[in-house]
Design a protein around this nucleic acid. Sequence first.
DNA 1: CTTCTTAGATAATAGCTATTATCAGTCGAC
DNA 2: GTCGACTGATAATAGCTATTATCTAAGAAG
Lengths: 347, 347
Amino acid sequence: MGKEKRRTTQQDIARMTGVSQATVSMVLNNRDDGEIRIPQETRDRVLAAIQSTGYVANPIARSLISQDNRIFGVFTYESVFPSEDLDFYHPFLAGIERRAEQLGYDLVLFTSSPVVDGGRKIFHAGSRLRLADGCVVLGRRVDRAELARLVAEGFPFVSVGRRDDVAAGPVAAVGADYVSAVAELVRRTGGLGHRTVAFVGEGAGPESSADRWAGFAAGVADAGVRSVRLRAKGRDAGEVLDSLVEHGATAMFVEDPDDTAALVEECGRRGVRIPEDVSLVELGGSPPRTARATPDFTGFRIPREEMGAQAVDLLARILGGDRGPRTRLLPCRIVAGATLAAPRSTP
Amino acid sequence: MGKEKRRTTQQDIARMTGVSQATVSMVLNNRDDGEIRIPQETRDRVLAAIQSTGYVANPIARSLISQDNRIFGVFTYESVFPSEDLDFYHPFLAGIERRAEQLGYDLVLFTSSPVVDGGRKIFHAGSRLRLADGCVVLGRRVDRAELARLVAEGFPFVSVGRRDDVAAGPVAAVGADYVSAVAELVRRTGGLGHRTVAFVGEGAGPESSADRWAGFAAGVADAGVRSVRLRAKGRDAGEVLDSLVEHGATAMFVEDPDDTAALVEECGRRGVRIPEDVSLVELGGSPPRTARATPDFTGFRIPREEMGAQAVDLLARILGGDRGPRTRLLPCRIVAGATLAAPRSTP
DNA sequence: CTTCTTAGATAATAGCTATTATCAGTCGAC
DNA sequence: GTCGACTGATAATAGCTATTATCTAAGAAG
């Protein structure tokens, strides 16, 4: 039992100086309002004692009073640091950290949350969520029910990525504007002379997938081209390529990076050159994960770091009582790349 | 002003149920000791109210009483997430996170600490260090004075990497055993027939550098070979190689990865083959940072993740009052690699 | 009927800080 | 000498939970 010597408290300082605890508190906080009057001599005496003891106010007691903690929580459904997930989380966290630093908030990672079938749970007996003034929720898989409960309990939070409405109302969220990005890419493709373009993927289900499809559809309408949707799930790249040819499509927009890799490989096997014979637009939104040589894909970049920063920003505003819009949609950067070119036979 | 509706408190639950706040607290904590008696009927009533409101005890008030917070601080002298520093911090953090998760601690990152000429400061007016029960200190540049103050104030902390003594006594720390690793590499080199080996670098200054030199010296003694130390600071790779040849050394142990890269390049220019003409042992301790093709260097790996985990572990023990050893030195893994081989002309 | 025991609960308090209300002087003015 | 105004401080309290000491009523034992 270490029997740690009790921390110094304001009471201690007060006794040392022969003043009251209240006085110490006021000196500490530089209170000098109309009502509060402390002569410099007393101030100096107290400050000297503070200096000599190295006293620092107990932030926990402060929080209990002020009802805020200057801490933002970062809740992730998976561990943050393991390598597999790092590529995903890292840019968000970089932005979160940067802005928290600017705003003077500390960050708490809720690593103590119990893991229930593969994902952490926000709510559980002894949840320490309230340590934070507010929370940024982050993750590939975000639990709608938990978000709904956050809303119901009035706990301030901002979701990064997921922005669909939950039962109790719209969720404060920062998202990426997939729709515009994909639409723009389709328009460029049409502008290069392609007359039929293919969407490879589901285009439904997760919000982000539905958005990509929506953007694709919008771009197709704008560009006045024909379009076809090719399912990739459960089919190998060969089948997909066959369908592509069959439909006469000259450009493919691929949702899933895994499919992209498979298609590139299959093209290589068949001697189909990209972009000379077929164009490929990659809709993953991330830089390539592997260091292996991959084509310089045409596509877009999700502004992950900026999303993290804006999430913190938004959270701070909400805590400040700001009643402005609670959803921010950030533009994605278009990557010109080298896998999109004019089709071989322009009509 | 949001006029956030006040959080539910035990007092609220008490009023709803017609019991006292104390009873609510006891039900909540499942108190059932000899002195505490609460019939099941009452218990159920209270629990029902807790369920319906979703009440969770305010962790801040709890902390104020229990004098602990179930939070470990992670103090870094630089931002954690920016890409430049990520390679360095990430493995440590992965280990810290993993073990904190296992032990049920949350982690707080002191992002609010003010930055003074390039590095964050632990101590400052309004330091929120005490939010944490203890702290892991991490960083390339660790401030001795601040560590000393942590010791003086009796704040529990564990330093990762830096383990030298500070004024007030030995610092709890987790380090990597560079000495053994480098010594072993030198012995292997001697075992392959090398008679003269060179240490390229300072071998002094930062603890880790001094350790590498100590290990080199120990290995040289064990292996019974001759050794030479070549400064690299301010000299270009050509000069260093010239010295090497001049001294008749057939293997070089290079401290700094930048020097390694320069030497490899210079060897390439001169047509000196590695390891056929000269062996190279890389003492950086990290996997290569760039994705560019680099030789598969012989060297060792600092067990960064394990260091992070053990730091948390040690911190938990210290908080538990454990009086055991406060310094842990973890073995490095030797990487056989492909840049060490027998010298061309074995005597 | 009195006293003791016990079950079942509550009042009071600690933990530390910030704020509000209050108090003891002093000085001036009348 | 009294009243008011002002200075320089302090006592008390809120904030929320966990624990300790205390209290009431009922039943048992004598």
